[in-house]
Design a protein around this nucleic acid. Structure first.
Length: 447
RNA sequence: GUGGCCGUAGCUCAAGGGCAGAGCACCAGACUGUGGCUCUGGGGGUUGCGGGUUCAAGUCCCGUCGGCCACCCCA
């Protein structure tokens, strides 16, 4: 068998998980303060949720889904996107009954069968938030503000929201027609991709990367000029709310979004530090999604943030992310005089560790029978602040920073009482260790 | 799905037809029953995998898998 994670997927190893916990913790805490509660949906959905929600013509549905038949012959797909499942859950459980709007967030894996490259994986993690039930521009500004403030809370500076409106069912078709009319005379000189997209996705002609096409696109009509009155008003309102909240944004007609369900607001934030896949989050309004899924019309707005990319940006920016905290204490055992004593010392070390943990310390006791030197080396590598060396007489507690050592047993008799497991001796020594290692910690058990 | 570059020890990399190596890391020991520094010793490899050329293949050729980067598209 092949000892290798599937292509485009990666292990998050013990040395990395502290970074993730930090990022997730900051974002969860912020979302909670915004009044968003977590929602957890299954990692698979009926394939139709994505086909109807995200749209048949999109790349996600057309070629990037992990789709399979279960044993009952149902077509299921790994979660390819975050918003459609949340809306499915909203409709299924009639979450609007608890009062609108629903504010919800999620941190979950997303799967897309795509060719991996910098910042793009077949399994990635999104932090996302949705406001469902409100059509007003304040909702757009609030949820996008949450995303921007989230990046800032992680330490990023100069975050700028790129903002656009893609219109609605009234004005978007008119705009698309105007776009085609503009590009039609240039069809012969556009790149192959643009010629293909001329019919299928004319908005995409606006963000072609070919220099020649870009020059042509520069003269194309812009969506903001085609917005119908209600869309215009909404777009203005979103900007007004963002400005009032002090969220930096820039109107960018090139923000187009690939998914069918977007209406009106479309937004993204980019970073120049992570290669070609440079969007840290993308989001927008999806007033048509609920109907596409077969529910009653319900407006919504939200975003999805790629946490792998955010971690990459933090790394590239040199923003320190906390690592694992080292243990307070390592309990070592000194060489014993005979195997019987060695066994007793080992058992005592683990019993003491257990008691000290209940008193609030983080404690390592070795599970490898090895020399004191080797135990010290290991304790040093763990970064343990103190080492308590158990032997038959002195019980020295060593401060690994200062090399200072204090003997915790008042007499060999104490040490023997400890070795026997005499409850009062054990408790007295645990209080002494706790007081030394963590002066502020409670000396009594916490349970 | 397309293209470019690249796969040698846990990591970073040498060896470019002729004995598979170094540094770091790891393990043990010495210097004190006690870590970092230093010293000594040790374990580790079907050179991604499969085939071909050759007396001889990490080395040349083909295929395949994987990684990186870019396109497409997205987070």
């Amino acid at each position: 068998m092949e000892l290798r994670a599937p292509r485009g997927m990666q292990d998050i190893l013990p040395g990395q998980t502290a970074r993730w916990e930090h990022v997730e913790g900051v974002l969860r805490d912020l979302a909670r303060r915004y009044g968003y509660r977590e929602i957890r949906t299954p990692v698979v959905e009926h394939t139709e949720v994505f086909q109807r929600g995200v749209g048949e013509g999109t790349d996600i549905v057309e070629k990037e889904m992990y789709t399979f038949l279960d044993r009952g012959g149902r077509s299921l797909s790994l979660r390819a996107e975050g918003t459609a499942p949340v809306m499915r859950a909203f409709l299924e459980h009639n979450l609007g009954a608890a009062g609108l709007p629903l504010r919800a967030y999620y941190i979950c894996p997303i799967f897309r069968y795509d060719r991996p490259q910098a910042g793009r994986y077949r399994q990635h993690t999104q932090f996302g938030a949705e406001v469902i039930g409100s059509a007003g521009p304040a909702a757009d500004a609030e949820v996008l503000g949450l995303a921007v403030r989230g990046l800032e809370a992680l330490g990023l500076e100069g975050v700028e929201l790129h903002l656009n409106s893609v219109g609605d069912a009234v004005c978007r078709p008119q705009y698309l027609a105007a776009l085609r009319e503009y590009f039609r005379p240039y069809l012969g000189e556009l790149c192959d991709d643009c010629r293909r997209r001329f019919e299928t996705a004319p908005l995409r002609l606006l963000d072609c990367k070919h220099e020649h096409d870009r020059r042509i696109a520069a003269g194309a009509p812009r969506m903001p000029a085609f917005l119908c009155d209600p869309c215009r008003e909404h777009f203005d309102g979103v900007q007004e709310h963002l400005a009032a909240a002090g969220i930096a944004y820039r109107v960018d007609p090139g923000i187009v979004r690939g998914l069918d369900y977007y209406t009106r607001t479309a937004a993204e934030v980019f970073s120049g530090k992570i290669g070609a896949q440079n969007a840290m989050f993308g989001g927008g309004r999806y007033d048509g999604l609920a109907e596409q899924l077969g529910g009653r019309p319900t407006p919504g707005v939200g975003f999805g943030m790629g946490l792998e990319r955010v971690l990459l940006v933090l790394e590239q920016t040199g923003i320190a992310v906390p690592g694992d905290p080292p243990p307070d204490l390592f309990i070592a055992t000194a060489p014993a005089q005979n195997p019987e004593q060695a066994r007793r010392l080992g058992a005592r070390a683990h019993a003491l560790a257990d008691g000290l943990r209940r008193a609030g310390l983080s404690v390592h006791a070795d599970v490898m029978p090895r020399s004191l030197t080797a135990q010290m080396r290991y304790a040093n590598r763990l970064g343990a602040r103190f080492v308590w060396i158990l032997d038959a007489a002195r019980l020295p507690l060593r401060d690994m920073g200062t090399k200072e050592e204090v003997a915790l047993a008042a007499s060999p008799a104490d040490a023997e009482a400890l070795e026997r497991g005499d409850p009062s001796a054990v408790e007295r020594l645990q209080r002494m260790v706790t007081a030394r290692v963590r002066p502020g910690a409670p000396g009594k058990e916490r349970g």
